[in-house]
């Protein structure tokens, strides 16, 4: 393989991964922007999506069932979490961080207890390779990118073209005013949390065939999602998307030259600089 081809392939892998991260980060950003809580368990919702998909494929043998059902199940779980855990503590920021830390332990250990500690794989549901720059690229990864883009477009439509989306944006802007106008903010919170969880799980199902599944796979994804949300600017969905793709491609390309660990250290330092110099993010507006 020529160096140019390698460069392109790594860049493409980065792009696909960046789009998956965008799904997860948008879920995080929705919740963070609306309820202003840090959900430590968000990475584990991603993991649950992937692991549930694995189970569903074991039972039904069908990836497509899993692709639809796993995010739905995790979305419902997210709504339960909001209702049962976060609402009783009134979304108090620090207490919420602790509660979601507890949830994270519960999810990881439950999966460890049932799924086991050994990494598992899911086969790519779409085989085949596309010829590209003198080598081949898996069709499934192209499908992942397309699927993520469709989901993102759906999210945009939901937020900006439906009544529910308008409620969400209203509660986010000014909760009291929204409540005064008759918006059921409790339901909006619950649905938003569920939507955020479902997005993370969708990322998990899509990522499952290109990575290995284990109970701690969310631990690594969580900081990445936070990096993207912060760099993109809190509450800026476009910013989150751009930052995710940018980070994915840059880390992908960096893998050509340095170890993944070094690449990650650089993105972490970059995020620290953004936090200090421009806490509203690169694309965010001043709060």
């Amino acid at each position: 393989m020529t160096p140019e081809a390698q460069f392109i392939l790594f860049g493409l892998n980065g792009l696909v991964w960046g789009l998956i991260i965008a799904l997860i980060a948008l879920g995080l950003s929705l919740v963070f922007g609306l309820i202003e809580i840090i959900n430590i368990a968000h990475g584990d919702l991603f993991m649950l999506g992937a692991v549930l998909a694995w189970y569903m494929i074991q039972w039904t043998g069908n990836f497509w069932v899993a692709l639809a059902a796993a995010p739905l199940a995790v979305g419902l779980l997210g709504m339960l979490i909001e209702r049962g855990v976060l609402r009783p503590i009134e979304h108090k920021p620090i207490i919420t961080i602790l509660a979601t830390f507890g949830l994270s332990l519960i999810f990881q250990q439950s999966v460890l207890a049932t799924f086991g500690g050994a990494p598992q794989r899911i086969e790519e549901p779409i085989g085949g390779l596309i010829p590209l720059v003198g080598t081949f690229y898996p069709v499934y990864r192209v499908f992942v990118a397309g699927c993520a883009l469709v989901a993102l477009a759906g999210l945009w439509l939901l937020l900006y073209k439906t009544r529910y989306g308008m409620w969400m944006r209203a509660v986010r802007q000014d909760r009291e005013m929204a409540v005064a106008l008759g918006i059921a903010s409790d339901q909006v919170y619950m649905l938003t949390f569920g939507l955020g969880a479902a997005l993370a799980a969708l990322g998990g199902v899509l990522a499952a065939p290109v990575t290995s599944l284990e109970f701690q796979m969310g631990l690594d994804v969580l900081p990445t999602a936070f990096i993207v949300v912060i760099i993109g600017g809190l509450g800026s969905l476009q910013g989150t998307l751009v930052a995710a793709v940018l980070l994915g491609v840059l880390e992908g390309l960096a893998n050509v030259f340095v170890t993944p660990t070094t690449a990650r250290i650089f993105s972490l330092l970059f995020m620290a600089v953004v936090l200090l110099v421009r806490p509203q993010g690169i694309f965010g507006k001043r709060p």
Binding site: I38, P223, I230, T261, R264, I265
Partner: peptide, 27 residues
């Protein structure tokens, strides 16, 4: 650096710094 930000940002930046040193230790 960390005390320059507060609230959620402080939480996140402490995680970021600890991850940097964790990765360096692995590296």
């Amino acid at each position: 650096f960390a005390v320059k930000v507060s609230g959620h940002y402080f939480v996140i930046i402490t995680v970021v710094f600890s991850l940097v040193f964790f990765r360096l230790t692995l590296q």
